[in-house]
């Protein structure tokens, strides 16, 4: 009975969604979005206030953000304040997890013993995963990726070590120190922007040529900090989840 009511309700909501969304004036059909009419046009031309000029890879210099990856330039430069808030949300949720589970001291008892292939293979794969993660967040302004996937990749490398070795424990104190240092440096860079060019988190370093490794001003610095912060935070979460209450 309950399921029938739920299905009827959902058919009603679905019909409303399917007819309502496409009746909105200006809502694009799938694959027919007009980027030129949206606010993103200014982000693509890397100039949100003045008339548009063409940006050429490897030639244009001293733009608003010198990042070749447009998603990065939005996440870390134009909407960097959002990202600061988002990193704070992640910090609060990891704080809640360590409040709920961090008091336990035992290890999970039901884990199976790792087999030979996992034990030997993890030693080979672990440095490669760490290197890929660091590469991804250092090149966040040139190629797909950035601080969030890079940091998660580092956390998953630590997860691999946990799975392959039952006695393995990370020194969680050092991870907490790394995380708080990275978070504080993010805020300090924002305040430096406030002092130097009058608004919070402004890009106060010369942005260089589009496509060079040393370009885009504060974007690579902030993305490395975000990568370190996310990686150490998720490592802390995984470490908390591997604990169990001892009776």
């Amino acid at each position: 009975m309950k399921k029938i009511v739920a299905i009827a309700l959902l058919v009603f909501i679905g019909a409303l969604l399917f007819t309502g969304i496409y009746a909105i004036d200006g809502f694009p059909k799938y694959g027919e979005a007009k980027v030129a009419d949206r606010v993103s046009e200014g982000y693509i031309m890397k100039n949100v206030t003045e008339a548009n000029t063409d940006v050429v890879y490897g030639v244009s210099t001293n733009l608003e953000t010198g990042s070749a990856n447009y998603v990065t330039s939005i996440v870390v430069n134009y909407r960097s304040f959002d990202t600061l808030g988002e990193v704070t949300v992640l910090f609060v949720s990891s704080l809640g997890i360590s409040l709920l589970l961090g008091g336990f001291s035992g290890k999970l008892r039901n884990r199976c013993k790792a087999n030979f292939i996992l034990r030997m293979g993890s030693k080979v794969v672990f440095p490669l995963i760490i290197m890929t993660g660091v590469y991804i967040f250092i090149h966040g302004h040139l190629s797909p990726g950035g601080g969030f996937p890079g940091g998660s990749m580092i956390a998953s490398a630590i997860l691999l070590l946990y799975l392959s070795d039952e006695k393995f424990r990370v020194n969680i104190e050092n991870f907490k120190k790394t995380e708080s240092t990275a978070g504080s440096l993010y805020v300090i860079i924002g305040l430096l922007g406030l002092v130097i060019s009058n608004y919070f988190l402004s890009n106060f370093i010369n942005t260089g040529t589009v496509g060079a490794l040393l370009s885009a001003g504060i974007i690579p610095i902030i993305y490395v900090l975000v990568g370190l912060k996310v990686g150490s935070e998720l490592t802390g979460v995984i470490t908390d989840f591997l604990k169990e209450e001892v009776e």
Binding site: I44, V55, V56, Y57, G58, A68, N69, Y70, V71, S143, P144, V210, G211
Partner: peptide, 8 residues
């Protein structure tokens, strides 16, 4: 949405 040496 990434500028590369091809989509330049």
């Amino acid at each position: 949405p990434i500028l590369t040496s091809v989509n330049n």
